[in-house]
């Protein structure tokens, strides 16, 4: 159980984390979602005792991280897979971890096997590792001490599709056995497939927090017209607020019937008309975090 209450951290006048409160419960995978610079990593570093907070508290099973006697046996932390001495071999990194925790050396081999790093790969130096291999090594390191809680910052970065599939299965099973997983990502689809709970953060503040199922229930309609501009005009004339979905269609809070009637009244040809499904989450993510999406046009801006 990770408990974060009223957590705040500023760097000068920049507020990195602003009054953040959430829980990560045993048996669930909690996705920590937000654009780059939203405060995900800072929050995770505070939980792991690497960054002092200004206000609020962060505890792991009721204990501050610094009070955990042997953290490696309780919390597996992977904050940056590339934060390793480039001159060490993969096996050496795990050996140092096993020594610190006080584990037998065979644990190193078990973990290497778990993350599919072959013996020749384990003998190579980290500078020759791909990002995907570093992530595997980092996950192996986090799992060394058989912890009940995992804190993983962008663990899917650099993994190939097969690797992401593998990690998803690993974390799913880990949570099913009662483990607590907190993982961050700046890509919605990455978290969407793994997480049970979602915490969306933007500009240091939590903007949405619920089970994935609830967040996906967002009602609305997806419609696609033969001429997108005519459809947009027709909807706006009917008083229906719509936003482009990025694939030539629009999304609105209205019912499919209302959209259909508006299109019919204006004589607009529809190619698609249906109840919007979970993809609404993406729109929410884009909207809620639009302030920090500096180089991506927000839906409002791109609406003609």
């Amino acid at each position: 159980m990770i408990t974060v209450e009223g957590l705040s951290k500023s760097y000068g006048r920049f507020v990195a984390v602003d009054d953040v409160t959430f829980n990560c419960r045993p048996g669930t995978v909690t996705g920590f979602l937000g654009p780059n610079g939203a405060g995900k990593s800072t929050t995770m570093r505070i939980i792991s005792g690497l960054t002092p907070q200004d206000r609020g508290s962060a505890t792991v099973d009721g204990q501050r991280y610094v009070d955990i006697p042997n953290p490696g046996t309780k919390v597996g932390v992977l904050l940056d897979a590339s934060a390793q001495h480039a001159g060490r071999t993969g096996r050496e990194v795990l050996t140092l971890g096993a020594m610190t925790i006080g584990l037998p050396r065979r644990r190193v081999d078990e973990m290497l096997e778990l993350v599919s790093l072959t013996p020749p790969e384990a003998k190579r130096r980290i500078r020759d590792y791909s990002l995907g291999m570093r992530q595997r090594l980092g996950i192996a390191h986090a799992l060394l001490g058989d912890p009940q809680i995992l804190i993983l910052d962008e663990p899917a970065n650099g993994l190939d599709p097969a690797g992401i599939h593998w990690m998803r299965g690993l974390l799913r099973e880990y949570a099913n056995r009662g483990g607590t997983v907190m993982l961050s990502s700046h890509l919605l689809h990455e978290v969407e497939v793994i997480a049970d709970e979602l915490i969306v953060i933007g500009n240091g503040r939590i903007v949405a927090q619920d089970t994935k199922a609830n967040l996906l229930k967002t009602a609305g309609t997806f419609a696609k017209g033969l001429e997108p501009e005519s459809l947009a005009r027709a909807l706006s004339q009917a008083g229906i607020h719509a936003t482009p979905s990025g694939d030539g269609g629009v999304r609105t809070e209205s019912t499919p019937e209302a959209v259909g009637r508006a299109a019919a009244a204006a004589g607009v040809v529809l190619l698609e008309l249906r109840a919007a499904d979970g993809a609404g989450l993406e729109e929410m993510f884009l909207q809620l975090t639009s302030d920090t999406q500096r180089d991506v046009a927000t839906p409002e801006e791109s609406l003609v």
Binding site: S116, D146, A162, W166, L170, E173, Y174, R177, G178
Partner: peptide, 10 residues
């Protein structure tokens, strides 16, 4: 790799 093996249960 494709068959996910979860870590030893705690």
């Amino acid at each position: 790799m494709s068959t996910a093996t979860a870590p030893t249960p705690y």
